[in-house]
Design a protein around this nucleic acid. Structure first.
Ligand SMILES: [Mn+2]
Ligand SMILES: [Mn+2]
Ligand SMILES: [Zn+2]
Ligand SMILES: [Zn+2]
Lengths: 141, 141
DNA sequence: TAGTAATTGCAAACAGTTCGCAATTACTAT
DNA sequence: ATAGTAATTGCGAACTGTTTGCAATTACTA
């Protein structure tokens, strides 16, 4: 399912070190099915090594995001960031307003937006954030 | 340009009162060309009535959002909310990563997303948040 | 194995926003 | 116009999520 990336090699190649916090954060992200808040990640990491600080969780996540390994999205009504292993942004988020479920939706819609803007509006899109809130199929009446 | 809505009547009709904070926040939002943070709104409101508190700004904005009069978006890299007079969500945000400019982009793209999800994926979209970061035409090299 | 810079844990700071509560105010009904 | 009443305000303090400075620790390199 997930590409078995060698985190140590990947990090070292870019001048970073493989540390316990980083390894554990990465493991937790990989094992999670969905999106996790930093707090949730900290809890899970803490079960494996209780010494690891929340600040280090944030630092790991920030680094992973810079390296393109992880991705943060603001999904809830609270402004909290939710993290996951990176997926391309043409896979977007469907957030059910009733049950809170978040699903991914792939397809060429986002790509259409990108090329439309590029071709007709001279806007060179870097990241496209698309998230849709509504009612999922099991919550529609 | 802007519909001359009668704020007092509008509010009273829904059981709210027209107060000074609300009137001034509404004026500021209407007069602004772009998106303002609560802090920016507070500054501008404060020039007209320095007694008005930041908390009241937030309370006014929250109320306006609930009534569909105003709209909050998270546009920058900081998590700060930016406010403006409501516009339909099929007008989305183009954020230039270099100069910080935010423009609106209308069109049927968002509507396509909505009907695609509805027709083929049984997902009843309520709000669609689409924002694109990249380089605006004057910042592309 | 030792040397060195990167990284950590901790606590404190921070930004943006919300909340409790007594005082004030806008509306309603006389 | 006035008084009554509930909605709203200002104020400060609390809160949430995140970041930062710094001394102590640790991962890598040689
Ligand atoms: Mn996702
Ligand atoms: Mn806008
Ligand atoms: Zn649902
Ligand atoms: Zn620009």
């Amino acid at each position: 399912m997930t590409d078995p990336i060698d985190l140590g090699a990947f990090l070292r190649q870019r001048g970073h070190r493989l540390t316990n916090p980083r390894r554990l954060v990465w493991d937790v992200l990989g094992a999670a099915r969905g999106h996790l808040t930093a707090e949730q990640i900290a809890t899970r990491v803490g079960r494996r090594d209780s010494r690891i600080n929340l600040a280090s969780i944030y630092r790991s996540l920030t680094l992973f995001a810079e390296l393109g390994l992880a991705r943060e999205s603001i999904l809830g009504t609270d402004g909290a960031g939710r993290w996951e292993v990176a997926h391309p942004d043409d896979e977007f988020h469907l957030i059910c307003g009733r049950c809170g479920d978040v699903q991914h939706h792939g397809g060429d819609l986002v790509e259409q937006v990108r090329s439309h803007l590029g071709n007709y509006h001279a806007f060179k899109a870097a990241t496209i954030e698309l998230s849709v809130t509504g009612l999922c199929s099991s919550c529609v009446v």
